[in-house]
Every structure is written in structure tokens, then in C-alpha cells.
Design a protein around this nucleic acid. Structure first.
Length: 316
DNA sequence: TTACCCGGGTTTTTTACGTCA
DNA sequence: TCTGACGTAAAAAACCCGGGT
């Protein structure tokens, strides 16, 4: 399958929001003891909302459901809308209200879950291929919305939460578990795409800066090879000045450039930049030194990739 | 050692969309 | 112009496996 790095994919990743900005790193597992009350409250709230939306859906069908979802702050992609159409149909209500598989926490039950027996399967499915055989259940819009909301709260589930969610949604715990695994994978994929774009732009900037520096170097060499000072009377213009911090040379300006008018080109100011990065003497970094400011700022982080909430790189 | 969970990768199924007769 | 069959890409659900705890 072709890798997709299109803008559309990126936009999707951004629009999803991924729910990370408020929850921190993906690695911040929520498998600590018990269901936290915020999580339970969120679940109850979402389920209640979904129930209300489902009641309305029969009257207004997907148009109203879409609006309700929008009101709930849910971003719906076309697939979701399609799923909504299915979920708001009377058939899906049965799927939602069908019984849960109960507490299948041991391995034997897990195997049963995997083989599909005891799961939520329609009569049509059961009749079609019988036992065994992977038969995929398309989650209803409502189920997906609840799962999505829960994912925003916590990207991982402890067994208790998983079971509660499965019971609420009429799904097997295994299905909930798989959904969360896939959702984390999608989140990571989107983040990778964003990171990739970020690095690409960074690379482009570096190339531009490299060009500029090469040009500057060429100018310097040209100055050095210029006729002797005797031929030209000494003048301020002939005096090279170099910023002690960034070592940028004011080339042949008759009057000092604004940047170098001050003997100390980087006047004191309140900069958050670490002194080491600013070259010690300077307390502020000129714009030309801020080629990639966040790269400097990021020195305080172990790696920029570990900043989990970064769905969008702030430099874009 | 065992059970469990998770991430990464893969397979399978569903869905949307474009093309063509 | 409409319609249905067909192919294809993308997304999602499910599975497998290895590693960590």
C-alpha cells in the first residue's frame, strides 16, 4: 500500500486533535489502580449524550446526529459520517443494546473472544460463515464516539475500565482492547507524519541558511582579495566589524548596519535563551541568530520527540 | 515460569469513489 | 443522462508475534 503523506492526511491528523494536548504522553499509562472518577464521569457523560443523540437520530437521521456530534465537539470525517448513517439506523440500536460478553478476563475466555464465539454477531453473520473465520464488526457511530471520547480522556485502559466500556457498548472486552491499540497506532502514525513534515521544513531552512553563509563567506573572501588599503583611504567603510557573538560580518556598509550600530550588537534584554547557546557574552539573540529558535529552546528537552502533546510543531 | 499488556506489523473486510459500458 | 458492474485506494477491525513487566 502506498504511504500517504499528503496534506490531507496531515490535516486529518491535525484536525483529529488526537486528544493528546490534555492528556500528556501516550506512554503515560492509565493502568493505575481503579477507575478514576473523572474517567467514569466522562464515560457516563458521553454515554448519556450518545443515548440522547440516538433517540433523536430516528427522527432526524444522520443530519441531526451529525449536528449533535458537532455540538459535542467531535470531528467527523467522511467515514464517521458514513458510519453514523449506519449507526442511526434501527438495526444498530440492537447492536448497541445487545448483551456484553461479561467478564472474560482469563485466557480461555480470551481465546473464545478471539475465535468469535460469544461475541456480538448478527444473525446474518452467524448464518453466513458459521463459527471460526474472521468476521469484522463495523463499530457504530455511537460506539466509535464513546470510544473516541474515552480515548481523549485516557489513551490506555485498565482492565476495569475496559470491561466497563465493553459492557456499556455491548462489545467484547477484546474488541475494546483492539480498538484502543489501533487508535494508539493511528495516533502515532499521524504524529510521525507531522514530525516528518517538521523535519522536512527544518532541513529546508538549514539549506537556506547554508546558502546564505556560503554567500557571506564569498563576500569576505572578495573583501580580502580587494586592493590594498593604500589605494583606498581608510574609511569606516573599510573596517570590518564582526559581531562577537554570532560572528556575522558587516560587510561593506558605509555606515554601520542597524545590527552593528551598537558596539554590543546584542543589547541586554530579557531572553530566555541559555547563555551557552547565546555565546556567553550575549544576553539576547538577534534575528539572524534565531535561525531556528525552537531548536535552541529544545535544548532543555531530552529529545523533541518526547514532547508528547506536540501534535503540531509550533514552528509551522 | 506464567500471565498480561503493549507496540509493530500484517491480513482481512468494509466503504467510498471513479470509470466505463 | 442514468445506472449498475467493476476496480481501486483508504480506513478500520482483527490478528500474530515478540518483548517488557
Amino acid at each position: 500500500m502506498m504511504p500517504r503523506t499528503s496534506g490531507a492526511s496531515l490535516d486529518l491528523g491535525l484536525s483529529l486533535g488526537l486528544g493528546l494536548t490534555s492528556q500528556g504522553s501516550l506512554s503515560s499509562s492509565t493502568t493505575t489502580a481503579g477507575s478514576s472518577s473523572p474517567w467514569a464521569a466522562a464515560l457516563s457523560s458521553v454515554v448519556a449524550d450518545v443515548a440522547r443523540a440516538r433517540a433523536d437520530a430516528h427522527a432526524l437521521y444522520h443530519a441531526s446526529a451529525s449536528a449533535a456530534a458537532a455540538a459535542a465537539g467531535l470531528d467527523l470525517d467522511p467515514a464517521d459520517r458514513a458510519a453514523m448513517r449506519a449507526s442511526t439506523s434501527p438495526d444498530s440500536a440492537a447492536a448497541l443494546s445487545s448483551g456484553a460478553s461479561g467478564d472474560n478476563s482469563n485466557k480461555r475466555d480470551r481465546e473464545l473472544e478471539r475465535t468469535g464465539s460469544g461475541g456480538v454477531r448478527s444473525d446474518e453473520e452467524d448464518g453466513a460463515d458459521g463459527a471460526g473465520g474472521r468476521k469484522k464488526l463495523r463499530l457504530s457511530k455511537d460506539q466509535a464516539a464513546v470510544l473516541e471520547e474515552c480515548f481523549k480522556t485516557h489513551s490506555t485502559l485498565n482492565p476495569k475500565q475496559k470491561l466497563a466500556l465493553a459492557t456499556r457498548l455491548g462489545l467484547r472486552p477484546r474488541q475494546v482492547e483492539v480498538w484502543f491499540q489501533n487508535r494508539r497506532a493511528r495516533t502515532k502514525l499521524k504524529q510521525t507524519e507531522v514530525d516528518c513534515e517538521y523535519l522536512k521544513r527544518w532541513c529546508e531552512r538549514l539549506a537556506d541558511e547554508n546558502k546564505r553563509l556560503e554567500k557571506e563567506l564569498a563576500d569576505l573572501r572578495a573583501l580580502k582579495a580587494a586592493p590594498s588599503p593604500a589605494a583606498q583611504p581608510a574609511s569606516p567603510a573599510a573596517t570590518l566589524t564582526m559581531c562577537p557573538c554570532c560572528r556575522r560580518v558587516a560587510a561593506t556598509a558605509a555606515t554601520p548596519t542597524k545590527h552593528h550600530q551598537q558596539q554590543q550588537c546584542h543589547p541586554k534584554s530579557s531572553s530566555s535563551l541559555p547563555a551557552a547557546a547565546a555565546g556567553g557574552a550575549c544576553s539576547v539573540v538577534p534575528s539572524h541568530c534565531q535561525f531556528f529558535p525552537a531548536a535552541v529552546d529544545r535544548t532543555s528537552q531530552s529529545t523533541w520527540n518526547t514532547a508528547a502533546p506536540l501534535v503540531t510543531r509550533e514552528l509551522f
